[in-house]
Amino acid sequence: MSGLLRSAVAVGRLSSPRLPANLTQANKASMPFIPQDWVFRFFPGLTRDKVRFMLRFNQVSFSMGLGFFYLWCHTPYKCDQYDHFEESYLYSWVKGNMQKTGEFDENVRIKVRHFYPQTAEE
C-alpha cells in the first residue's frame, strides 16, 4: 500500500508545474504585504533594537487594524433610520411585483410591528 502511495506522490510531483524559487521561499524570507527589509535598510535608528522594533510594529499594526475597523468600517449612525432607508432597484422591483399580485398587502397585514404581546389595557 505504501508503494502505491509513494508512486502516486512521485507522479503528482512530476506533473505539477513548478513555481519560481522566489515565490516558494517567500514565507521563509519575508512577511506578507510589508517590505520589512526596507525598514531595516532605510531606518537603522528605528531598528537598532530588534525586539523593541517588533513590539512597536505589533502595537502599531494592532492599532491601525482597530482604527480601520472602528473609524472606517463601522460608521456610526449610518443607515440606521429604518423607516426612511434608500430602497435598492431589486427591492423596488420585488415590491412592485408583490403589489401587482396582492402579496404585499397580505405581508403588511400580518407583519408583526411589536416585540412583546400587546395587552388590552384601556
Rank of each mutant, 00 (worst) to 15 (best):
P20I: 09
N22W: 08
V112C: 10
S61A: 12
F85W: 00
Q59P: 02
S61W: 01
L66V: 06
R48L: 06
I110L: 04
Y116N: 07
S15A: 10
S2L: 14
R13P: 00
P32Q: 01
E103M: 04
N27V: 06
L66G: 01
Y91Q: 15
A120L: 12
A26P: 02
F69W: 10
F85N: 04
P76M: 00
G65A: 13
L5G: 13
R113M: 11
L14R: 05
M98T: 00
I110F: 03
W93Y: 07
R41A: 08
M1Y: 09
D80Y: 07
N107F: 04
A26K: 01
D83Q: 11
F43C: 15
M64L: 14
L66I: 05
Y77H: 12
Y116V: 13
P35S: 01
A120Y: 02
R6Q: 04
K111M: 12
F43M: 15
V108R: 00
Q59M: 04
R56P: 06
F57C: 00
P35T: 02
D105L: 11
M54V: 05
N58G: 06
S2N: 14
L71P: 01
Q99N: 08
S92H: 05
M98C: 07
E122R: 11
C79P: 11
S7D: 13
I110V: 06
E87A: 15
T75E: 11
A21K: 12
D105S: 12
T119W: 04
E106I: 09
F43T: 15
Y89L: 15
P20C: 04
S63L: 06
G96N: 05
G45Y: 05
L66D: 08
N22D: 12
P117W: 01
K111V: 07
T47S: 01
H74R: 07
A29K: 10
T47D: 02
K50C: 14
E103W: 00
K78H: 08
P117Q: 04
R52V: 07
T75P: 00
R18S: 10
Q99L: 07
L90P: 02
R48Y: 06
Y70T: 09
Y82H: 15
Y89D: 15
K100Q: 10
Y82W: 15
A8T: 10
L5E: 12
Q99E: 11
F43N: 14
F69L: 13
E122H: 09
S16Q: 13
D49V: 08
F40V: 10
K100H: 06
K78E: 10
S2E: 14
Y77D: 14
L55T: 11
K50P: 12
W72F: 11
A29G: 05
F53P: 02
R41M: 12
E121N: 15
S63Q: 09
F43S: 15
Y91N: 15
H84K: 15
Y91D: 14
T119M: 12
L46M: 15
V94G: 06
V11P: 00
G102Q: 03
T47N: 02
V39C: 03
E106T: 08
H84W: 10
Y77N: 14
C73Y: 04
N22I: 09
V112Y: 02
L66F: 06
G12H: 08
Y70S: 10
V94S: 02
